[in-house]
Amino acid sequence: MITLNKEIIVIKKEQDVVFFRNRVNEYAEKIKMGLLNKTKLLTAASELVRNMLIYAKEGKVICEIVTISALQTGIRLTFIDNGPGIADIDKAMTDGYTTGKSLGLGLPGAKRLVNIFDLKSVKGKGTTVSITKWKNG
């Protein structure tokens, strides 16, 4: 995968989320991503950035325009935090599993909405989630 464009956005408070979502929206428009794909990407991003704020208090997102061929361009977002980490990743990826009082939809739902989903977490060290959404498909 080749990166065409890269930017790092720091997330510390809720207002940063609005800025971040707008930025992702701009990237999606830049590569002319279709409306449905863009909506799915933005929604997945919204779930992951909220997790970062709630469970790790803060973090950063690397936003990239990536390409694998002349025909396939997409957006990759990598959410990096130094929070408490996730003890049981399989559980966390299950619909309905939450350590809060929530619905436990964020992680499994975000995975369904994107093309590539990669979660790495070390307990006590932090969590990194990377998602990629292709412009087409």
């Binding site: 909506t39 739902g109 369904r112």
Partner: peptide
């Protein structure tokens, strides 16, 4: 509700 939003919500699981 925009159709893209409705479709996304279902896929999200809500």
């Amino acid at each position: 509700m925009q159709p893209a939003v409705a479709i996304t919500l279902i896929e999200l699981g809500l």
